[in-house]
């Protein structure tokens, strides 16, 4: 059996090329997850194996349908069930690990990561299906081209929006005025002990996030999104705290009057530029994005139209 054998068996060529592109798609998308998820080899193996299954399922569906074997489509339903379990698996693992984090990810961030893992498997299926379809209809060369287009599209869109898209991030001085700690003009908390005030004055780093529009205000106010920012920045810069020190917790507080978000960190590494880059590149959680402005405008327009 060699490459020439594949060319005279178009079904097999479709399945092989489709599967290959399905797996490659999964591989490309797995790489960007390292920041969000520990890159241990066994987790990687699990996801590559599932990517292979996803690719194979997508690729096999095409010849099955072309041979009028419509029951084969039920296989895809089984696949969907399988990948929903992937989401459960990721959620359970991350939830279990979250108790051991000094600064938690929070359930919204975990849910976001789990959804991404499930969604990316479907993208693999889709890429494999499309490639296999084009191979079956127009030959292997066109199929490879279609696969490459899929890969390029996935590569281009694998990164979602970040905080930089919804807010202007600025440094703000951390002020300790008696027991009150403020970042810029946002009140953060009351700290009783002198030693904790000294630590905050020395190690504290403050940012103020100004929402770019009214939709962004809602997103920044979301508790899950705030926790995600705190977790990501604490992961990248280290955190100056230990278990059993609730007074030294990184905090995010809303300036109620302005809708600005004040952030107080206690990083190990006091590098303002790195911290700024970390805040700006925190992913925007799907569950935190709302579009109230558009909905309100539409409701208003309807009200005007209906008199």
């Amino acid at each position: 059996m060699n490459a020439a054998w594949l060319l005279v068996h178009p079904d097999m060529a479709g399945v092989t090329i489709g599967t290959a592109f399905g797996v490659t798609t999964r591989y490309v998308m797995l790489r960007s997850d390292y920041r969000q998820y520990p890159a241990y080899p066994h987790g990687w193996i699990i996801h590559m194996a599932l990517g292979l299954i996803a690719g194979a399922l997508g690729a096999v569906a095409v010849p099955a349908l072309l041979n009028k074997n419509y029951t084969a489509i039920t296989f895809l339903a089984m696949a969907a069930q399988q990948f929903r379990d992937v989401r459960n698996m990721e959620r359970n693992t991350l939830n279990a690990l979250d108790d051991q984090e000094l600064v938690r990810r929070g359930s919204a961030y975990i849910e976001g990561i789990a959804v991404v893992f499930e969604g990316r498997n479907y993208l693999s299926i889709f890429a494999a299906f499309l490639t296999s379809l084009v191979v079956s209809l127009a030959g292997w060369a066109a199929g490879v081209a279609a696969g490459l287009v899929c890969l390029a599209a996935v590569y281009r869109f694998r990164k979602g929006k970040t905080i930089a898209d919804v807010a202007r991030v600025e440094f703000a001085p951390v002020r300790v005025e008696g027991p009150n700690v403020l970042v810029g003009d946002v009140y953060m908390m009351n700290v009783g002990l002198d030693e904790n005030r000294d630590i905050i004055a020395k190690q504290g780093m403050g940012f103020v996030l100004t929402p770019k529009n009214d939709d962004a205000k809602v997103t920044l106010a979301n508790l899950g999104q705030r926790q995600a920012i705190l977790h990501d920045v604490s992961t990248r810069l280290g955190v100056y705290r230990d278990d059993g020190e609730p007074a030294l917790l990184p905090l995010a507080k809303l300036g109620l009057a302005t809708g600005k978000l004040g952030l107080l960190f206690l990083p190990r590494e006091l590098d303002p530029q790195k911290a700024l880059r970390a805040v700006v590149s925190v992913p925007l959680l799907e569950s935190a994005v709302r579009k109230p402005v558009e909905a309100n405008r539409r409701a208003q327009e309807e009200a005007v139209r209906d008199g």
Binding site: P179, N190, G192, L193, N196, P246
Partner: peptide, 18 residues
Amino acid sequence: MQELAHLLEKLLNAAAHQ
């Protein structure tokens, strides 16, 4: 007062507020 609050903070796993 500071000393007592410090000890209680560590012992009770809680935060001292003024």
